[in-house]
Simulated scan of single mutants.
Amino acid sequence: MARKLPLFVDPEQLHDVLGLPHVQIVAVDPAGDYARAHIPGALQIDMPDFTASAPPVAGLLPDEATLAEALSDAGLRNDAHIVAYDRVGDGQAARLLYTLDVMGHSDLSLLDGGLAAWHEAGFELEDGQPQAGRSAFEVTRQPDGIADRAWIEQHLDDNHVSFLDVRSAAEYAGADVRSARGGHIPGAISLDWLHFKDARGRLRPRAELLEILSQHGVDSQCDITAYCQSHVRSSYAYLVLKYLGYPQVRGYPGAWSEWGNVDDTPVRTPSDPA
């Protein structure tokens, strides 16, 4: 039954499998927030546990040994269907699921709307500390889901590769500067990740998502790399494209916090000559 869970699950679908041994729910939450309120039986992991930084660069993928240790400490199991949620707009939970996906674990779901959606549906919450013990989670890096700076530089002029910038329009234009330099990767398509969500912060219907992507010129036949500032928002976009069946999708850990903080990467803004 767990393997039939869709990539994006609603609270009712998750409630139906609550407590099943082959389903693990994990809150991407600081320990204090988790202890105050979480979905019954949920495990807990925090963003710093499964990301790395090399200031000013944030949102990097740790090495496999570090990730295996962190995921094992959280009690996650390779034989489980893992459902992640957060309380801050789904991006942090999406980043965990991206990490799991590119480390070889594909039985995954995101609780659409996170803890707020669960609470709105009227389902129970509990408090206290995680109950599961340590596991022995194994990871196997999947390079096809990962783009790094060198890979992007090699493919800037590749007509079969597309870059999807899911930051705000102001960040893309260089008006909102969050690194040493503002702007975007040359040729990148601007599509704010919030366009994937409806007014309630839930995923839009499939037909609407496909229309939005088509209107922005996102070609499903391209090798698509999604990025934002530190690959939180773009992890959500990565999952959306996977959900829609796009055949080749990558994420760029580090993202603009890397690209915009070095002085030898090409950067474009709307004021640049064509």
Results as ranks from 00 to 15, higher is better:
1 M>P: 09
4 K>L: 12
4 K>W: 06
9 V>G: 02
12 E>N: 12
12 E>R: 08
12 E>G: 08
12 E>H: 14
15 H>K: 15
17 V>P: 01
18 L>I: 13
20 L>D: 13
22 H>C: 13
22 H>Q: 14
23 V>S: 03
26 V>E: 04
27 A>E: 09
33 D>T: 13
33 D>I: 05
34 Y>C: 09
37 A>E: 10
40 P>E: 10
40 P>N: 07
47 M>S: 08
49 D>G: 11
50 F>H: 08
50 F>R: 07
51 T>C: 12
51 T>F: 10
52 A>K: 13
54 A>M: 14
57 V>Q: 03
58 A>E: 10
62 P>C: 14
64 E>V: 09
66 T>W: 02
75 G>W: 09
76 L>R: 11
77 R>M: 12
79 D>A: 11
83 V>Y: 00
83 V>I: 12
93 A>E: 00
94 A>D: 09
94 A>W: 05
94 A>Q: 09
96 L>R: 04
97 L>P: 06
97 L>A: 09
102 V>G: 01
102 V>T: 13
103 M>H: 11
111 L>V: 09
113 G>S: 05
122 G>H: 12
124 E>A: 15
128 G>Q: 10
129 Q>I: 14
131 Q>L: 14
133 G>Y: 04
140 T>R: 15
141 R>W: 13
143 P>H: 06
148 D>K: 08
148 D>R: 08
150 A>M: 13
151 W>V: 06
151 W>A: 05
154 Q>N: 11
157 D>K: 08
158 D>Y: 01
162 S>I: 02
167 R>I: 10
168 S>I: 14
168 S>Q: 14
169 A>R: 14
170 A>L: 15
171 E>T: 10
172 Y>K: 05
173 A>G: 07
174 G>T: 05
175 A>Y: 12
176 D>G: 04
176 D>R: 14
177 V>A: 06
179 S>G: 01
180 A>N: 03
182 G>P: 00
183 G>I: 00
184 H>C: 01
187 G>T: 12
189 I>V: 15
189 I>L: 15
198 D>N: 14
201 G>H: 06
206 R>D: 04
206 R>S: 04
207 A>C: 02
208 E>K: 05
212 I>T: 10
216 H>D: 11
218 V>E: 01
219 D>F: 05
220 S>R: 06
227 Y>Q: 03
232 V>T: 14
238 Y>Q: 05
240 V>A: 04
247 P>M: 02
247 P>S: 02
249 V>S: 00
254 G>L: 07
255 A>D: 04
256 W>F: 11
261 N>V: 03
262 V>T: 10
267 V>A: 10
267 V>F: 05
267 V>W: 08
268 R>Y: 09
268 R>G: 01
269 T>A: 14
